[in-house]
Design a protein around this nucleic acid. Structure first.
Lengths: 175, 175
DNA sequence: CCTGACTGATTGAACGTTCAACTCGCGGCG
DNA sequence: CGCCGCGAGTTGAACGTTCAATCAGTCAGG
C-alpha cells in the first residue's frame, strides 16, 4: 500500500502470520488444559514446576520470575495466590535478608506431581508428537535466533539451566 | 520423578522450553513496541490491519474475530475502544440484519498507515532478518503442524486468506 | 555516620481479557 | 401460529496482568 518501508514478501508474511497465530493461540490452549485439569494457569504451573526442580525446593523470587518468564510483580501476585492454596510459602532468604525465597510445601509437591502428567500429555499431543525430531530441532533453532533478538536474557538463562540438566542428574517435574 | 507418563527427553524439553519462552515473551515485546509508538496493542492493531485489507474496509464481527485470533467478546470490547478513538464504526450489516459489521473510518485508515511501518520494522528486526529463508520456512512448517492440532480452524482460515493474497492482487496493510 | 543510589520485593489501582448471562433476529417443526 | 432452539453480538462482573509508586535492606562515598 505504501512503499517507503520494505514490505514483507508473501512468504515472509505467511510465516509471520503463522507465528502470530501460534503465540496467541497456544497459550490459551495450554491454559485451558491446565485450568480444566488442575485449576492452575501456565504461569502458576511454571512456578510450581520450577520450585520442584530446585535444590531445596526453594528459589529466590527474582530468579523464579526469570525462569517463569514473568515480571517480579506478576510473580509476587501469583505467589500470593499459590500461598492461599497452601502450595508454596514465603521465607526470608537464609543469607543476606534482603531477598525472599518461595518454598514448595508438601501440598505443593502433591499438587504439581498431580498436575504434571496431563500437562505433559498435552505437550506431547500438540508439539512433540506431530513433529519429527528434525522438525523439532529446526523449530528450536529458529525460535532461538528470534529470542536472541527479542530477549537475549531468556536465551542465556535457558542455555544455562539446560547445560546443568544434561550434566548433573537433576530430577525435575519437566515444565 | 514419576514414571507412568512418558517423560520428555532433554532435547524435546529444550525445544518445548524455547517454545514457551517464545509464546510468553514475544507478545509482550510486540505489544510494547506498538503501545509505545501508536498506543495500540497487537489485537487492536490486527483489527485495524484486517479491516484495511477487506473489500469495503468492513467485516462482520464474527469473521473479524477469527482473523484476529480472539473471541467475540474480546472483539466486542476492543471495537468499543477503537470506536471511542474514532478509528472504526459499527454498522448493522447490509443484508440479513442479524449481524453487525465493523467499518474502518478515514481516521482509522490514517491510524493504521501510521502505525504499520514501525511495526513491520520490528517484525523484520525480530523474526525476518535473523533467519535465513530456509529457516523461516522451517519455522512456518513446524508451527503449522502444531497449529493443525491446537487449532485446525485457524490453519484453514490462514491458508484460505493466503491463497487469495497470492492469486488476486489484493493490497493490504500487512499485519 | 549519614546520605544517596541501587536492588529485591510488595502493593493498589488501572487496564484488558475471560466467563457467564442475556438480548435479538431468524428459522424449523409440531 | 406459537414454541423452542440457535448463532451473532453485547454486557457487566470477576479475574489476572501491568504500571507506577512504595518500602526495606545494602553498599559506596563524603
Amino acid at each position: 500500500m505504501s512503499e517507503d518501508p520494505h514490505w514483507l514478501t508473501p512468504t515472509q508474511l505467511y510465516a509471520w502470520m503463522q507465528l502470530t497465530g501460534a503465540i496467541t493461540q497456544l497459550p490459551s490452549v495450554i491454559d485451558a488444559q491446565l485450568r480444566r485439569d488442575s485449576g492452575l494457569n501456565f504461569f502458576e504451573y511454571s512456578i510450581l514446576a520450577g520450585l520442584s526442580g530446585a535444590p531445596r525446593r526453594a528459589m529466590k523470587m527474582a530468579t523464579l520470575a526469570q525462569m517463569a518468564n514473568g515480571s517480579q510483580s506478576r510473580l509476587s501476585h501469583a505467589v500470593s495466590r499459590l500461598e492461599k492454596g497452601g502450595w508454596v510459602e514465603r521465607r526470608t532468604c537464609p543469607e543476606g535478608s534482603r531477598s525472599v525465597e518461595a518454598v514448595l510445601t508438601e501440598e505443593g509437591v502433591r499438587k504439581i506431581t498431580e498436575a504434571a502428567p496431563s500437562h505433559v500429555r498435552e505437550v506431547r499431543r500438540m508439539v512433540v508428537d506431530p513433529l519429527t525430531d528434525e522438525e523439532l530441532a529446526q523449530l528450536r533453532n529458529a525460535l532461538r535466533k528470534i529470542m536472541l533478538v527479542a530477549s537475549p536474557e531468556a536465551v542465556r538463562l535457558l542455555d544455562d539451566t539446560f547445560a546443568e540438566t544434561t550434566a548433573s542428574g537433576q530430577s525435575s517435574v519437566d515444565r
